[in-house]
Amino acid sequence: MAKVEKCSCGTDEEGLLERLTEIINTLKDKPGALIPVLQATQSLFGFIPQEAILKISEMLNEPLSKVYGVITFYSFFSLKPRGKYVIRVCLGTACYVQGANEILTALKQQLSVEIGETTPDKLFTLDVGRCFGACGLAPVIMVNDDVHQWVKPSDVKKILGTYSRRKVVNKEEE
């Protein structure tokens, strides 16, 4: 794990920008390429940095204002760096009537952040979602791609713990 993170295949900003250039080159002839390019950028950097916006605008020949407009329209794109783990509390109907709001409150208290904010250690970002299609298991929260089901406010501490411990383990490996 640690090895992968340290390899020289371009995890620094410049390396990532180079990879972005390659990605844009493969996608740019597709009709309507802007959104697939932005999706690739978001997963590459974890957010959409200013340098990337400039590059996308130039290479796709789209005005900066349009690129920015599209980024801010869709909730999956973020202009700010996000935490290693993005926690999304489902506020869909099924989860809502089963008490999702109380889970959100508990998470806010535990992490001391509001919706959309990231903890100072850059570990967790708190966000909300509108239905993950796991209504049969409501209420649910997603931490990155993991779904946690039937969550109670009292479970929150334990769930967060499993992720913050992972960080410690990773560090030891390094």
């Binding site: 869909g92 109907t93 099924a94 989860c95 239905c131 299609g133 796991a134 209504c135």
Partner: peptide, 10 residues
């Protein structure tokens, strides 16, 4: 499939 509470398409 955006309607909260719908997961048939998924």
């Amino acid at each position: 499939e955006g309607d909260p509470g719908a997961f048939m398409d998924r």
